[in-house]
Design a protein around this nucleic acid. Structure first.
Lengths: 234, 234
DNA sequence: TCATAAATATGCTGAAAAACATAAAAACGC
DNA sequence: GCGTTTTTATGTTTTTCAGCATATTTATGA
């Protein structure tokens, strides 16, 4: 408790993500009462595949990866989260265990709400339920598209796709071309369904071709049109 | 109209799929009034990727494939439908275009309901909305698992997986081992993310190894334990 | 019923990507 | 500041699978 900021020092949930704003004053009070602020160190696991879904989270600070482990512990990153993203709700809604892992890419802070309260809100607030349904419908489209991207595109196409996804999700630094997310080659590989060696090799190739420039983990997009082209072509 | 059975000759929607049973008497009347019975010939397209989502369907008779087309028109089957399955709702809910194609594997019959009415029902019936949200949450877990299966497993693992999926979805014939779905090698390939040649070849190998026996499109599972093992191992 | 098309079967070749190996550079802990 | 670990880089080998070619069998339609 000592080195945890109290909830009051962060904005309220409904100020961070509009999905919570459909709650009534009374429901917001309940959430305020129940929600906890948690801090996660770099690489700390927030929830693990197979655990009963007891909580849902909203990321406040930091970056989080959602990933599944498949054949031989090989990880596949499903989604990257940025502040105010909401996660863990799929399992809570389905009354399932978590079917993916969440871990902090960098040291992060999140609101944690217990799943029971979340489900109660879904039951009693129609608009909240409707919003959540829409969010799932959109996530499903993304997941299905992801399957095609990862299975049908070649290595270069998959890496190009990942670079564009990172840009879309986290944006660029002030210089207007450096990805505002410094990710390890291993994470890049786990996003793009390839080995770490191949992520390193292919990124080097992109750099040699002048598509990007690389300085450690800082990646500048130099020729976005061509990167898009490689991503489309597969 | 002449060779279309009228709706009355089929069971009501809520008798076919419990998801519709949460509707009020009045809402059921509305649905009865709006719903249309449509017949689709083998390989007829029911909805296509990119079309505005104007309708949702419930399959009454037959079998339907849901698939996406990726790089170079290569098809990936996302889901196989059996009677009473509900489809097209993801796009309707997200207010999106359809992000996949639906076509009849064999000649099929379906109830079609316009998306406007469907959305109206979601807005006015909280329980219906809740059910739909749960359905989406479950579909999302399946889609994410599918990504891992298709990207990380080798050809044999993917084909084994598909055989088990078909069994789970359509069951077995009276003999207790023949898959109750006679699918072309091409469809099998499009399910399993491989070329038709490789689906044919790999299925032949399975037959040589005594895992299955093949008679045209009839596939008998002879050693399900080993098939499961191959599917798990990748 | 026969001609034609479609589906299945099988072999061969080459491209793509994983696996493995090794080294250099960077980050980290003490 | 220095040793240790982790990450990045790059070369080599091997495996997997797509692509192509060619029969053969099975379905389809006039």
């Amino acid at each position: 408790m000592a080195n945890r900021k109290k909830e009051e020092t962060y904005a309220k949930l409904w100020e961070l993500n509009p999905i919570w704003d459909v709650l009534t004053a009374e429901e917001k009070l309940l959430v305020s009462d129940e929600v906890q602020v948690l801090r996660y160190k770099k690489n700390a696991v927030i929830h693990a595949e197979g655990d009963a879904a007891t909580d849902v989270w909203t990321l406040i600070e930091g970056k989080v990866r959602i990933y599944k482990e498949g054949v031989g512990q090989r990880a596949q990153i499903i989604r990257l989260l940025k502040p105010y993203d909401f996660f863990g709700f799929r399992a809570a809604i389905a009354g399932d265990v978590y079917t993916s892992n969440a871990s902090a890419i960098e040291s992060s802070v999140a609101y944690k709400l217990n799943a029971k309260t979340f489900i109660q809100l879904l039951h009693q607030n129609h608009e909240f339920c409707f919003q959540m349904m829409m969010a799932l419908a959109k996530d499903l489209a993304v997941a299905e598209l992801q399957t095609i991207n990862l299975t049908q595109k070649h290595i270069r196409g998959r890496l190009a796709e990942s670079l564009l996804t990172i840009k879309k999700n986290y944006g660029l630094d002030e210089d207007g071309c450096t990805l505002a997310m410094y990710m390890s080659r291993e994470d890049l590989a786990n996003m793009s369904n390839m080995t770490t060696s191949n992520a390193i090799r292919t990124l080097s190739q992109f750099a040699q071709e002048g598509l990007v420039s690389v300085d450690g983990r800082k990646i500048k997009l130099l020729n976005e049109e061509e990167i898009k082209h490689i991503s489309r072509l597969g």
